[in-house]
Every structure is written in structure tokens, then in C-alpha cells.
Design a protein around this nucleic acid. Structure first.
Lengths: 220, 220
DNA sequence: TGTCAACTGTCAGTTGCTGACATTAGCCTC
DNA sequence: GAGGCTAATGTCAGCAACTGACAGTTGACA
């Protein structure tokens, strides 16, 4: 009873219809959120735009926030996939860095299959400027962190509950990633290339920021 | 019109009464939350326990979550104070490390003036096991991070919008702190000394986790 | 003591979210 | 291709977090 092709199993009419409803809800929600604001948009308005009942919305998404992060889910899955594909002999931080930068390169196509890329970018900025969504975003990030830490630990043959380094590294890494996203959201460069470049730059600042005395340049 | 002594200005009866109501709300809320769970406790129950109207609760706290973090606010203020007191020639990460460890040493007394310390510790664990509160906690942390980054930047004579190092360092630092708190919350050691020690240990792992190849020990 | 302002209570309303139950509409078998 | 099965949806009622408006109460202060 396993699905034949997890990537494209739109077997029946029913499945296709469900997928369409789901995509329509995501699209309508993000469109409304980015236009008039997250708090100012009600579930009723989203449901009405897609012509379904409010109850149906909640059958697709557990809560109002979840619809915002539906696309983000794809992006994260893509990153994890990229990380798993890194060569085993690469040092941990290099693997993380490589996975992020590679993921940014071909994420556009994946997003475009659901919503216009620029809508996703606007949504990203909306998240960073809406307190409730910032909170949700951060919580999701920590859950992702745990998965990443497990992956890193496995690469290095360690146990996350014994050796703190995987979690510590990933926590530091994620913190830097978050700041990059935040700064990008506040800036004027709306391109994918822009956030990719900022990410790279910030990751490269991480080691120096920690190791050295910023004034003398000496380690401490 | 500035308050004469911010620490102890209980001038009139009115002020004292307000302070008592506020403290009673915090205490009752945390007691109920830790006993029967955050979600399972309604504002009505908290208000009833203190014998005020629900509306009054919302005049003291903007929302249900805020009452949980009222004490945390004190702790954070204490940390910032400690950080400002660090010698100017100390490297950034050392200053952060020193401030945290010193703050943990005399935070107990400050907390005890509002609620029993063990109630605060139980509340801390409750936060770490309640999704909605984890999210709120993380968001608050990032706001604190911005303040810390500003402080670090000022110490080093930098501008956070020009040089990314303050934000990058603080993001990494905070990530590590968060993991320490989380691991402590999942463990069995409920003491203040326990979390202090874990914090110290994790901070000391930060450099090595980033700099080196964990297997060969070589830098990369 | 009397006036003012701050604090509080009451009430009604909106919105996110959930359970229960009825209805519709793909799917599958005969 | 008729009928039954079941997943998907609609409808309705209700709870809890919050908010605005207005009225009553109570410290503060002349």
C-alpha cells in the first residue's frame, strides 16, 4: 500500500482536488497577509477567497500560522536533503555552509511549483516583521536544529546526548543564519542572490567573531 | 516627574496595592500553570484566584504569555547590568561569558523578592515544554540579543549595521545559551548551580566546535 | 471635604479554534 | 451503471483569548 512515486502521485481526481485546494489556500492566504497584514486578515476572508468553509481551512492547516510556513517546509526539506548529500570527510561547519549555499541555488524552482517566487520573498519579509510569526518561525527553527544536530552527530559518529558539540555548533550556526535572514529582510535587496550572498558573508564572519580579540586580532 | 528610586519607590498606598496585585497575579498564574499546564489554565481561573476581574488581568499583562515572563524580565535586566559592568579591555565573548556566570550567582535573591525560587525553576521547565511558550521565549531572546549586540558594538567602538561581528557573535552565543537551557530543562538537576555549570561547559565547547575538524583536531 | 484621576468591574463583541453531526462527492464492486 | 463505502466538506454550537466602551469606586491632593 506504499505510494508508488512520492514526488508525483496524483492518482485520483480526489487527490488532485485536495492538492489544488491546499495550494489555493496557501496562495490566497499569503496574498492577503502580505497585502493587508497578518493580524488584519481573518481566516474567514481566506476561506471566502478560495470559496471553502472556515472549517475546511482548519482541516488543511492546524492553525492560522501553519499556512504561512507551508512553503518554508519545502525549503527546509531541501536543505536537509542537501546536507545529507555532503561528502562524509567534510568538517561539520563546512558541510552546513555548503548545504545552505547549494540549497539557495536551486530552491527557486521548487517554490515556483506552488506560488510565485516573489510572493514567497514578500512572505519572508512579512514573517520577519510580524511578532507572532517571528516567534513561530524561531520555534520551527529550533525543531529543525535538532534534526540537523542529529545529522551532524551521525556524520561524526557521535551521540548528541553525550557530546555537546553537534548541538552547540548547530545552535551557533542557526543563530548566524537567522541574523542573516533578519538583516536581509530589513534591507532593500529582494533577490535570492542577495540573501545567498549575505548568508555566505555572515558565515565567514563567524569564526573570527568568536576566536579573536577584535582589536588586536589575537586569540584568547 | 522621573521616579525617585526605581528600585524601591512604593510612595503611595495606590502604588503598593498595584504592586501587590501584580505580584499576586504572577504567583497565582505560575502556580496554576505549573500545576495543571499552561493551555489548560484559563485567564478566568487566574483572575478568580486573585479575586479580580478578567479585564484587570489584561490591564497588567498584555496577553496570557506575558505573565509567564514577568520574572524573566528581571533576570535579563540583571544580565545586561552585569555585562555593562565588565572591564572594557575584555574580549567580547569573554565579557558575555563572565556576565552570564556572574549573573547566575546572585540571581536567586532578586527572584525571591517576587516568587519562591523553586516556582521560578518549575516555570522555566514549563516554558521549555510548552510549544507556545517556547516560541514566545525565543522571540524575547532575539529582542534581548539586539540589545546585547548594541552593547558589544559600543564596547568595541563599532556600528552594528556596518560590522556584522557583534550580531554574529551574539547570535552564536545566544544559540549556545538556549541549548544549555533546553538540555538542563530535560535533565534531572533542578538546581541553579546545575544550569550555571552546564552554561559554562557549553560556552567552553563553542570555540572548538566551530574551529576544528572534530576528528583530526585540525583547524579548517 | 470635595474634586480629579487612576484603577477596576461589567458587558458586549470579534476572532481563532474545536467537536459533533449531517451532507456531498469520488471511488470501487458487482 | 446502480448502489454502497468512505473521505472531504459544510453547518452549527461553543469555548477561550482578547478588546473597546462605559460606569462605578477609591486613593491622591488641594
Amino acid at each position: 500500500m506504499a505510494e508508488p512515486t512520492p514526488q508525483t502521485p496524483p492518482t485520483g481526481l480526489r487527490e488532485r482536488k485536495k492538492q489544488r485546494t491546499r495550494d489555493a489556500l496557501i496562495r490566497a492566504a499569503l496574498e492577503l497577509f502580505t497585502e493587508r497584514g497578518y493580524e488584519a486578515t481573518t481566516i474567514d476572508e481566506i476561506a471566502e477567497a478560495v470559496d471553502v468553509s472556515q472549517r475546511t481551512f482548519f482541516r488543511y492547516f492546524a492553525n492560522k500560522q501553519d499556512v504561512v510556513f507551508a512553503v518554508q517546509d519545502m525549503v527546509e526539506a531541501r536543505f536537509l536533503q542537501e546536507l545529507r548529500a555532503r561528502p562524509a570527510d567534510e568538517p561539520p561547519l563546512s558541510a552546513l555552509r555548503g548545504a545552505v549555499l547549494t540549497a539557495w541555488d536551486d530552491i527557486g524552482d521548487a517554490i515556483a511549483s506552488v506560488i510565485p517566487v516573489d510572493l514567497h520573498m514578500r512572505a519572508f519579509r512579512m514573517i520577519e516583521s510580524t511578532p507572532a510569526l517571528i516567534a513561530a518561525h524561531l520555534r520551527r527553527s529550533t525543531e529543525l536544529e535538532e534534526q540537523i544536530a542529529e545529522l551532524i552527530a551521525r556524520r561524526e559518529g557521535l551521540d548528541v546526548d553525550v557530546d555537546p558539540r553537534p548541538r552547540v555548533l548547530v545552535a551557533a550556526f542557526s543563530g548566524v543564519m537567522r541574523v542573516a535572514g533578519k538583516v536581509w529582510g530589513e534591507g532593500h535587496d529582494c533577490s535570492v542572490a542577495g540573501i545567498r550572498e549575505l548568508t555566505r558573508s555572515y558565515l565567514d564572519h563567524m569564526g573570527p567573531a568568536i576566536e579573536t580579540d577584535w582589536r588586536t586580532g589575537r586569540n584568547h
